[in-house]
Nucleic acid binder design. Structure first.
Lengths: 210, 210
DNA sequence: AGGGCGGGTTCACTATAGGAAAAAACTTTC
DNA sequence: GAAAGTTTTTTCCTATAGTGAACCCGCCCT
């Protein structure tokens, strides 16, 4: 175990954040790729411009490569990041997982405009991301750029009343119980228009990239 | 710039490979994200555990962060790599579809045990299927076999109180606001236990080959 | 055995990333 | 418009990533 890992762990503990980031065995993965192509460390060194010794250390998790080193790897080996990061993706039939979140016990992610409560956050590797949001924003101007992310989003108003701004449509007023489904790479933003801050439930699809 | 870079460049020329290494203004992108969220360097420092000074240098392209630093960024800021790497890349596949369903205007599918109201039913080709369900069943025996379907399901109780039976776990009592995420090929069934019939909102992934 | 040889790890050193605090640039306040 | 406060950049130092060379294998040789 490297000092880097300990340090990261300590930091997470110190800041109270949950460690729901997967191990991410980058070195291991690199070695897999290298061996799969019947390359020696020297070959990879030639292709990437990184020293043999450096590559060895990366493979054995003795150092955390700088980002520029990672770039040299992906360009030199002609692979892309997801390929380097994600394990061989043994799509084994994960059967019977479940993740319960009692009311109010989601993971909070406050921002100036929204107050997100991530639900089912303990389960990694899921295809949907559900979260409850208190919409603090009151004016469209509070957003400095469109919110936008790959995939699709479903949204239903649990409480209050909102105005949904989208890139290609007129703003839409949604009341309690109204719901909408949209492509979330279209810019979007919500503001509350009821007396109290509105609460919405959203479910996003998770992009397949890392 | 550095000897390393020159060396790599020389190697690429020597081997006839295209440079093709995109600029990848990681620092610039980070700053965009930070400002878009109204975060100061200090805020980001708190969230990620990286020093203010380090963040400043990354934003100004004065250093190339180690991969562990990048990891801290993505976990701390709750973003993913593509988001951090790809510039606002004029998305080409922005479709911008949307489908509004006003409260009570979903498509009804009554069964003896459940009364489903399909939401966003006008939009075909979507990755999630959202629906509201009034749980009429009162006893587990009313189900003659497990409900089961490919993919994953997210469920949140909107009203009343239910008991969730699943194939591999003890029955689980869920009250208003509680939510759960599970693999839906595991058999499952709901019954109402509150005075009035409970109402739940579900979102299923749509099975599709990848 | 001993001697090359291809492939990987370790070592000693240099370059650079990361951290703490001071300095500089900007804002706000009175 | 100076003082006080806030945010970012610079500076200086330490920790660590990256390098070339030495070293350590197991594997042919003849």
């Amino acid at each position: 175990m490297t000092a880097t890992t300990d340090q990261a762990a300590a930091l997470r503990i110190a800041s109270g954040r949950k460690a729901f980031v997967e191990p991410l065995r980058l070195g291991e993965r690199l070695k897999e790729i290298r061996l799969a192509n019947h390359w020696t460390l020297d070959d990879v060194s030639q292709r990437t411009g990184l020293a043999r010794s450096t590559l060895s250390k990366i493979e054995n998790d003795q150092i955390s490569p700088t980002f520029s080193a990672v770039q040299k790897l992906i360009t030199g080996l002609n692979i892309d990041l997801p390929q380097l990061l994600s394990p061989p993706k043994t799509q084994q039939r994960t059967l019977g997982r479940r993740d319960l979140t009692r009311v109010g016990e989601g993971q909070l992610h406050p921002t100036p405009t929204y107050e997100h409560e991530l639900l089912s956050w303990q389960l990694a590797q899921k295809r949907m991301i559900p979260f409850k949001t208190i919409v603090r924003a009151r004016h469209f101007e509070e957003f400095h750029e469109w919110v936008r992310h790959d995939g699709e989003e479903f949204l239903i108003v649990l409480d209050g009343e909102i105005l949904l701004y989208t890139e290609f449509y007129e703003p839409l007023r949604l009341e309690r119980g109204d719901s909408i489904y949209f492509d979330s790479d279209m810019g979007h933003a919500l503001i509350s228009v009821s007396d109290e801050d509105a609460v919405v439930l959203s479910v996003c699809t998770r992009g397949d990239a890392v």
